[in-house]
Amino acid sequence: MQTTQLTGHDIAVNDEGFFLNPDEWSEAFVPELASREGIAELTPRHWEVIRFMRKAYEERGGAPSVRALSKESGIPVKELYALFPKGPAKVAARIAGVPKPVGCI
């Protein structure tokens, strides 16, 4: 098990940096997590995606893949990739402190 320091807390993460315990997450970590993902400016649209991932996980126990994220949130795929060039669902899930999405499409 690995840990990462976030605003003075030791957080358990897996080898890809996903939270092992999503309950340990707080919105206060988001700016630091986003900056680690190379997101220079965290916009309201980024927040919308991150909160959507969080909500989807809390409601269903799993975060959606890119296509489902786009369909359900109404944010176009193209914009999602512009916001999170390194993989919208994966990166937003990591910032939102939820497990990596498992959908293949």
């Binding site: 890119v66 919208p88 994966k90 990166v91 293949c104 499409i105």
Partner: peptide, 11 residues
């Protein structure tokens, strides 16, 4: 196509 899309989803 699935491999290509999956690759993009992984960044």
């Amino acid at each position: 196509l699935i491999m290509a899309n999956g690759a993009r989803a992984e960044g």
